[in-house]
Design a protein around this nucleic acid. Structure first.
Lengths: 114, 114
DNA sequence: CTCATACATGCCTTGACAGGCATATGCACA
DNA sequence: TGTGCATATGCCTGTCAAGGCATGTATGAG
């Protein structure tokens, strides 16, 4: 996950991913469309690949890069764990509970009598 | 989105977000649990706040930080745009289409006769 | 008003990483 | 085998951001 976010945090890599949403592309194709030098494109693709976000398929001399569905599913899975958070717009409760926990903990020096 | 990813790409910020999943926390509370110095926690929270990932509520001298449901919904929305990608495990088609596009484009110098 | 607590901010140093450029590698075709 | 095209890699430089530390600010208690 961390590696995924780090990969997507770079503006040009983000653009590459957005571009690949429309389908597989060759390196120079990407470079042309996004106005990037070929070496940087290769480097960014390397990072994206190591993060598991893209995959390659050789086609003669060119390499077609495409998004890896699996990585997106993984992101989706991660996000699902936060479902609770955005479902509950009424959870003023947690807030209170946590405040009490915090108070309890910081009361140690106040001679808290349970 | 970019700002969101950048915020989550930092290991300690990621940990903070994961921690906040269980509810609002005060700054020192976070620092204690994650073994971080208070100033760095404040700085990270600042970044998270500017990225729209968390929100603050003053409680006496402490500040309770909590996840912003809206930001998570936004991420979810972004990811939805890629739904097509991970739904289609049979899309060898796109690949072919794109290859043709590419070929077409790079044929310019080969005297392509349409 | 003074003091303590909880947090924020500023400065400094260091490491990581992106871009530019030159060059190496792999594949195809004559 | 030599040549050209597509891509990868290495080196260098500049920039930016995270951590450590000191200090500033606000709130509550006595």
């Amino acid at each position: 996950m961390l590696e995924t976010f780090a990969a997507l945090a770079e503006p040009n890599r983000y653009r590459i991913v957005e571009l690949l949403r429309s389908g597989p592309r060759a390196v120079n194709d990407i470079g042309d469309r996004l106005q990037l030098n070929q070496p940087q494109v290769s480097k960014h693709l390397r990072v994206l690949k190591e993060a598991g976000l893209v995959d390659v398929q050789p086609r003669a001399q060119q390499r077609l890069y495409e998004l890896r569905p699996q990585s997106l599913r993984k992101m989706h899975g991660w996000l699902e764990r936060y479902r609770r958070v955005w479902d509950e717009q009424f959870e003023q409760l947690d807030e209170l509970v946590e405040e009490l926990k915090q108070r309890e903990r910081s009361d140690e020096r106040h001679g808290k009598r349970k």
